[in-house]
Amino acid sequence: MAAISREEVAHLARLSRIEMTPDELDHLASEMQLILGAVARVQEVAAADIPPTSHALPMTNVFREDVTKPSLSPEDALSGAPAREEDRFKVPQILGDAE
């Protein structure tokens, strides 16, 4: 089983958009090692000829009729917004970031 380093956890935190403290990263790296060791057991029985199951019951894509139905008003949709400007969500700048 692959060992997971503190740097890898830091990378995963960046991918997950969670700004973690050095202490959190240290702690999580050791916990992840234990948890991954336990969950890696699935590999013992996952033979090549077994098909994967993503969903318990047989499902096909579902479409609805293309008709107008009542939906949230702009006021309702914006009611939980951390910041708004007129009828829009106001967000911090999205261009020019480091990434």
């Binding site: 995963l12 935190a13 991918l15 999580l28 969950v39 996952a46 994967p52 993503s54």
Partner: peptide
């Protein structure tokens, strides 16, 4: 973090894929 790891390329088959087989 665990889920992000299990879904990342290179680990997907070994973790998430195996779990789906289980």
């Amino acid at each position: 973090i665990l889920g992000t790891y299990a879904l990342s390329s290179g680990y997907y088959d070994a973790y998430y894929g195996s779990a789906q087989k289980v």
